[in-house]
């Protein structure tokens, strides 16, 4: 039997809420799949769309951005910025042939350990259903043959 597909999921977690929320989930020993590779950022407002695209082109199967609930951003407007950027990211993903469902922006407070665990579980299952994200540059000529 082929082994189950274990997606690589990159998560950008804001320091103040989501990362703390993730910590809480850990401390509470909540069960959730191990596929998330968390990256701690100071605020979702600093996650430039280039980083998300980079994650996909480097082989991520899914990408999440998690930050404070609206109105609770520690830099006031970081998360509203992230929200408008998320729209941009979805638009661009679609056009380069990546299912926008592979990307998600969510709000998690520092107290929401269980919400965090649930989210990661759901997102991982969703990506498992979508299957591996083939880095599209494999259509292109083998880089090794470049002269």
């Amino acid at each position: 039997m082929p082994s189950r597909f274990e997606p690589i999921i990159i998560g950008f977690l804001c320091n103040w809420c989501s990362y703390t929320g993730a910590d809480l989930a850990g401390v509470a020993r909540l069960q959730y799949p191990p596929n998330l590779r968390p990256i701690r950022v100071m605020c979702t407002g600093m996650v430039h769309p280039d980083l998300v695209m980079e994650a996909f082109s480097q082989g991520a199967d899914g990408v999440m951005i998690m930050g404070c609930h609206p109105g609770e951003c520690h830099y006031l407007e970081g998360n509203t910025k992230a929200a408008v950027r998320a729209k941009v990211i979805s638009v661009i993903l679609q056009d380069i042939g990546v299912d926008p469902n592979r990307f998600e922006l969510k709000w998690i407070s520092s107290a929401e350990g269980s919400v965090f665990a649930q989210l990661i579980t759901d997102f991982t299952m969703r990506i498992q259903k979508l299957g591996p994200h083939k880095v599209k540059s494999c259509e292109y000529r083998d880089r090794e043959t470049i002269r």
């Binding site: 769309p49 695209m53 910025k81 408008v84 950027r85 729209k87 941009v88 638009v91």
Partner: peptide
Amino acid sequence: ESNQRLSMLNALASNGIDI
């Protein structure tokens, strides 16, 4: 290496312009 469209949409969105 950057993507003109992504950068532009990002700049617009970040400045509150409806893309």
